[in-house]
Each structure stands twice: as C-alpha cells, then as structure tokens.
Design a protein around this nucleic acid. Sequence first.
DNA 1: TTTTCTCATCGTATATTTGCGATAAACTAT
DNA 2: ATAGTTTATCGCAAATATACGATGAGAAAA
Lengths: 102, 102
Amino acid sequence: MSRALKKVNYSEDEKQLALFAKALAHPVRVHILKLLNSQSCCYTGDLTELIPLAQSTISQHLKALNEAGLIQGEIMPPKVKYCLNKKKWTVAKDLFADLFDQ
Amino acid sequence: MSRALKKVNYSEDEKQLALFAKALAHPVRVHILKLLNSQSCCYTGDLTELIPLAQSTISQHLKALNEAGLIQGEIMPPKVKYCLNKKKWTVAKDLFADLFDQ
DNA sequence: TTTTCTCATCGTATATTTGCGATAAACTAT
DNA sequence: ATAGTTTATCGCAAATATACGATGAGAAAA
C-alpha cells in the first residue's frame, strides 16, 4: 500500500530505457521485432501463421510493442500492416548502447 | 490454463535477450546498473542511501540482476560487494546491438 | 443488406512482479 | 556467549502480465 506512495525519481532516460526493456522482456516480442526488422513489414495474419499463439494473444503483444513506440501500424483494409518505428528504434538502440558503454 | 501447455520454441538468443531485457525492465534496476558501471562496485548499504526504497526491496532487485547474470556479489563480511559481471555484460551488449543492427 | 475477412478488445483465470515490515542468517567484535 | 552490523529471505497485499475464447468493429465483396 505504501507502494503507491513511493515516488522515486529516476531520470527520463532510465524510465524510457526501462519501458523499452519491458517491451523486449518476452521472447515472442523479441521474435516479432526480429521478423519486422528482417522483412520490413508484416501483417498480423502473417504472424499468426508463424507463431503458434492465439490471434488475440499476438494482438496483445503487438499492442505492447506499439505502446512502447517500437512499432507502428498502418491500416490497409481489411488488414493492418505493422512496421518498425525507425525513429524510436534508433532512440532505443542508442539508450541501450549508452548503458552498455564501457 | 492452456497457458502452461503452450510451449512455443524460441531461439536461445531470443530467450536470453528477453531475460536480460526483463532484468532491465524496471527503472531502479537500470539505475543500479548505471551506478555499478560508473563506480566499479558498490555495497548494498551504499545503495540504500542513494535510493529511497526499503533495504529488502533493494536486495530483491539485486537478486534479480544477479539471477540475470548482470552483476555478481563478493562476500566481504559483514558486507557484500556487488560488481558488474563483465562477461555477461558483454554478452548482453552484443545481443542488444545485434537486435538493433541496421 | 448481408456476408466475409481481418484485427482489436473484453472477460476471465493464473502467474509474476513489486513493495513493505519482520525476521533469519552470517560474520565481527566485545 | 552476547551484542552489533549487514544482507537475504519470508509472508503478505496489490498491481501487472500472459494466455485463451468469445465478441466487437470496420471495410470490402456478394
């Protein structure tokens, strides 16, 4: 209960990095990102064929990646095309690289 | 319940990266790693002075980082000195760099 | 209009994470 | 032995994450 009262102040970078890390904290999301990175873009339908999880589950993972800003969806009725968000991708890359620097 | 039955096979790299990411998925753990990275090593006591969280909570976060292999503790009675695990640190660095390549 | 296709969201069950205080464990020093 | 110091673990409560099937929303095609 004191948990909600505990407001520790971290830097913006630390918070952003933690959010990116959280998005990467499940193998299937890493897998999806690798797929998107290798073949530019993807439809959800393609993913449900490649990954043995329920369509709703994959949609949830895509939502998580989207909310973290790592991917973005483009509506192409009746499908939705997902691509990496190159800008955020670079931000994430730099944050992780900074962390691991020496 | 079918959740436990669903055993999707991811690559070792994907699983390892997800585990590292999970360890980085909380701002306080990112913060701790930055501290350890900047000042070589740290005692838990130092951290409890720098971070406004209960000692038990910090100990739990250290345990998480330790189990992910990112840090290692050296017993120096009555204290424990924590340092980065350089080897694993490099592994993690490379995995993240690979993911974000191009 | 109705059907079909694709994807998102809802509702639910279970597991995991996060925080705390209290207590245990390990070692020193008295 | 006893007391003090430091860190780890336990037990709890609340929040989040993960999976599923069922259902909803939106556009295209019949």
